[in-house]
Amino acid sequence: MDIMNIRDNPTFINQASEWFSSKWGVPVDSYKESMAECIDYPRSQTQWYVVRMKGKIIAGAGVIENDFHNRKDLTPNLCALYVEESHRSKGLAGKILNHIVNDMNDLGFTTLYLITDHTTFYEKYDWVYYCAVQEEETNDSVRMYRHDTP
Score class of each variant (00 low, 15 high):
residue 45 Q to E: 09
residue 112 L to E: 03
residue 126 D to Y: 13
residue 54 K to I: 05
residue 56 K to F: 15
residue 50 V to G: 02
residue 33 E to H: 12
residue 64 I to V: 13
residue 53 M to A: 11
residue 31 Y to T: 07
residue 130 Y to L: 12
residue 86 S to N: 10
residue 124 K to Y: 11
residue 81 L to T: 01
residue 62 G to Y: 01
residue 71 R to F: 09
residue 129 Y to E: 06
residue 72 K to L: 09
residue 69 H to V: 11
residue 127 W to D: 00
residue 9 N to K: 06
residue 94 G to P: 01
residue 69 H to P: 06
residue 122 Y to P: 00
residue 26 V to H: 08
residue 21 S to Q: 10
residue 88 R to G: 09
residue 12 F to G: 03
residue 136 E to D: 15
residue 97 L to D: 02
residue 93 A to E: 01
residue 61 A to W: 02
residue 59 A to E: 05
residue 78 L to H: 04
residue 130 Y to T: 08
residue 105 N to E: 14
residue 112 L to P: 02
residue 126 D to H: 15
residue 63 V to I: 08
residue 40 D to L: 15
residue 74 L to D: 00
residue 126 D to S: 14
residue 68 F to Y: 09
residue 49 Y to N: 00
residue 135 E to L: 11
residue 136 E to P: 08
residue 74 L to V: 05
residue 131 C to Q: 15
residue 60 G to D: 02
residue 118 H to V: 09
residue 25 G to E: 05
residue 104 M to R: 04
residue 112 L to Q: 00
residue 93 A to W: 08
residue 37 E to I: 13
residue 45 Q to H: 08
residue 46 T to W: 07
residue 62 G to M: 01
residue 38 C to Y: 07
residue 42 P to Y: 04
residue 15 Q to K: 15
residue 80 A to G: 05
residue 83 V to M: 02
residue 135 E to M: 12
residue 73 D to F: 07
residue 131 C to E: 15
residue 79 C to V: 12
residue 44 S to F: 05
residue 82 Y to N: 09
residue 121 F to D: 02
residue 24 W to F: 15
residue 116 T to V: 06
residue 114 L to Q: 00
residue 96 I to K: 00
residue 106 D to C: 10
residue 43 R to T: 14
residue 82 Y to G: 01
residue 90 K to Y: 04
residue 62 G to E: 03
residue 113 Y to I: 07
residue 84 E to R: 13
residue 106 D to I: 07
residue 73 D to N: 14
residue 44 S to E: 00
residue 10 P to M: 05
residue 102 N to I: 14
residue 107 L to D: 11
residue 46 T to L: 02
residue 27 P to E: 15
residue 95 K to T: 09
residue 19 W to G: 03
residue 47 Q to P: 02
residue 44 S to M: 04
residue 85 E to H: 12
residue 125 Y to W: 14
residue 64 I to E: 01
residue 75 T to C: 05
residue 97 L to V: 13
residue 103 D to S: 01
residue 52 R to A: 06
residue 34 S to I: 10
residue 125 Y to R: 00
residue 27 P to K: 08
residue 106 D to N: 14
residue 120 T to W: 05
residue 11 T to W: 09
residue 55 G to R: 08
residue 126 D to V: 11
residue 136 E to I: 14
residue 75 T to R: 12
residue 57 I to A: 07
residue 65 E to P: 04
residue 81 L to D: 02
residue 94 G to R: 10
residue 51 V to I: 02
residue 12 F to S: 06
residue 47 Q to T: 00
residue 39 I to L: 06
residue 45 Q to D: 06
residue 123 E to G: 03
residue 92 L to P: 03
residue 121 F to E: 03
residue 34 S to Y: 07
residue 94 G to F: 11
residue 20 F to A: 02
residue 127 W to P: 01
residue 30 S to G: 07
residue 48 W to M: 03
residue 69 H to R: 06
residue 35 M to C: 02
residue 84 E to G: 11
residue 48 W to I: 00
residue 14 N to R: 08
residue 47 Q to W: 00
residue 130 Y to H: 13
residue 77 N to H: 12
